[in-house]
């Protein structure tokens, strides 16, 4: 239903654009010409890097987030403090400066410590996306877990379960249904934020569009295609998330 509306609106926008012949020059990505095909292929081949970047970063962020969220809910304030500080600190740093810091700054620190690890654009972008996202993922976990009635933890305690068992068998299976929708939201956010990786030279969707704009000088058409590339990616993700949510019973009204 939603998909149909989006496609319809997009089509109207696109067609009206094509119609006003003065501003648009679709030849640059016209699939009927050899150059057009080549250009399309060049742009679309950025998908793989964007997907890789987003999926790996999201995966790390999901694990990191849980590792931060669990001690962040401890009743012991000294256990709680480091993860809370981490969340507040990381959440406050904009993605682009953090990306610069990780890509240009971190290797210098590592080198001064005698660690010779080369951080390339790919891993620089993944580290940045994962770390910056983990603060938000951690908060998503926290809100999901804390939304589960305290009585559940108490009942688990009284039947002899320890903390790990209580989390694994009682709290997380219930929390995951509430965590999934905002987590998916966050994944879509990562996909979009991965565009920043273009500034450190990562050959993903946005970088490729930029490079083609420089040689072809048709920003309108190329960036329009770029927008649609992201739109398609996000819609596909949304579709999978919806079916996953149905399977997990996230819709508690049913």
């Amino acid at each position: 239903m939603n998909l149909k509306i989006i496609v319809a609106i997009s089509a109207v926008l696109l067609l009206s654009g094509c119609g006003s012949s003065g501003a648009w020059g679709w030849y640059v990505i016209d699939p009927r010409t050899a150059t057009g095909q080549e250009n399309i292929y060049f742009l679309v081949s950025g998908f793989w890097a964007t997907i890789q970047l987003s999926v790996i970063a999201a995966f790390i962020s999901m694990i990191l987030g849980l590792v931060i969220a669990l001690p962040g809910m401890s009743s012991n304030r000294w256990v709680r403090l480091p993860p809370r500080v981490y969340v507040e600190f990381v959440r406050a740093i904009p993605l682009l400066p953090m990306l610069f810091w990780v890509f240009y700054g971190l290797p210098v620190i590592l080198q001064s410590l005698g660690i010779n690890i080369n951080i390339d654009a790919f891993w620089g972008a993944i580290i940045t996306l994962a770390v910056s996202d983990s603060a938000f993922t951690a908060e998503i976990y926290r809100s999901g877990i804390q939304s589960i009635n305290k009585g559940q933890t108490e009942a688990a305690k009284t039947i002899g379960l320890n903390y790990r068992q209580t989390m694994r068998y009682v709290i997380l299976p219930q929390a995951i249904r509430r965590i999934l929708p905002p987590l998916a939201n966050q994944f879509i956010y990562i996909v979009k934020m991965s565009a920043f990786a273009s500034v450190i030279g990562m050959q993903e969707l946005t970088r490729r569009a930029n490079e083609l704009v420089v040689t072809e000088y048709r920003p309108l058409e190329i960036y329009t295609l770029l927008v649609f590339e992201y739109l398609v990616l996000v819609l596909v993700i949304s579709f999978f998330v919806r079916s996953l949510e149905r399977k997990m019973g996230s819709d508690e009204s049913r």
């Binding site: 009942a155 009284t158 039947i159 002899g160």
Partner: peptide, 27 residues
């Protein structure tokens, strides 16, 4: 020590049988 609560506090994602077997199996 067993405890019964005012609000039951059963585990809603598990069946009745699973509610009963969780403690004996895991603890």
């Amino acid at each position: 020590v067993g405890m019964v609560f005012q609000q039951f506090n059963l585990f809603p994602h598990l069946t009745i049988l699973q509610n009963l077997t969780l403690g004996p199996m895991k603890a």
